[in-house]
């Protein structure tokens, strides 16, 4: 075929685009192209004749609808850290990791927390800062009280840590578990 009328080219381009991904695309487009060549072979292709042949072929969308659909790609499951199991691991490392392996366990938990898409920025800030900030504040207030009213009135620092730390630690863990959302493309509904 040396010269293809523009209407034919446009029709075949449409069809090819609509069949994109279908395993039968090339066979179908080739069949339709040869149908047009054959149907127009009888004489010189005047525009009305071309129009008539394309009309008889029908809407490219109707042809594509008859074709084997493109294979559906199953949606990839979210990576482990974005799923509930990953969230639990992150929270366990944050709350107990520092006890099992001092400091390092907690830092690994922080790394997981910040690399996860399951928490919003505010949740990550709370999970990271609440314990250090509150503990520092409690110890500072304790020190101020001790300065003002003498050592006997102060609650010893290790008592503060022993009581306040586990409570805060568990509270943050529960908070993070409640705030975790399995990440999806959709905005999180509130």
């Amino acid at each position: 075929m040396t010269s293809q009328p523009p209407a034919v080219r446009a029709y075949l381009d449409d069809l090819r685009r609509l069949l994109d991904g279908s395993p039968d695309r090339d066979l179908v487009v080739d069949g339709v192209r040869r149908h047009i060549d054959d149907a127009l072979a009888a004489g010189p292709a005047d525009p009305a004749q071309v129009r008539a042949v394309l009309d008889e072929l029908g809407d490219p969308a109707a042809i594509a609808a008859e074709s084997v659909p493109a294979p559906v790609q199953p949606a990839a499951p979210p990576p482990f850290l974005e799923r509930r199991g990953g969230a639990v691991l992150t929270v366990v490392l944050l709350t107990f990791g520092g006890i099992v392996v001092p400091v390092a366990g907690w830092i690994v938990g922080l790394g997981l927390l910040w690399s996860s898409k399951g928490w919003r920025l505010a949740d990550k800030l709370v999970g990271t800062l609440l314990i250090p900030v509150v503990l520092a504040a409690v110890l500072m207030i304790g020190a101020l009280v001790a300065n003002a009213s003498g050592p006997s009135a102060a609650i010893p620092a290790h008592v503060v840590l022993l009581v306040a730390f586990p409570v805060l630690d568990l509270a943050v863990g529960v908070f993070l578990l409640l705030r975790f959302r399995v990440a999806s493309g959709l905005p999180v509904s509130r």
Binding site: L15, L27, G31, H35, G58, A62, I63, S67, V68
Partner: peptide
């Protein structure tokens, strides 16, 4: 439905 719908059938 129309001539063109033959070709997906033939391809299959």
């Amino acid at each position: 439905a129309s001539d063109g719908t033959l070709y997906p059938v033939l391809a299959r």
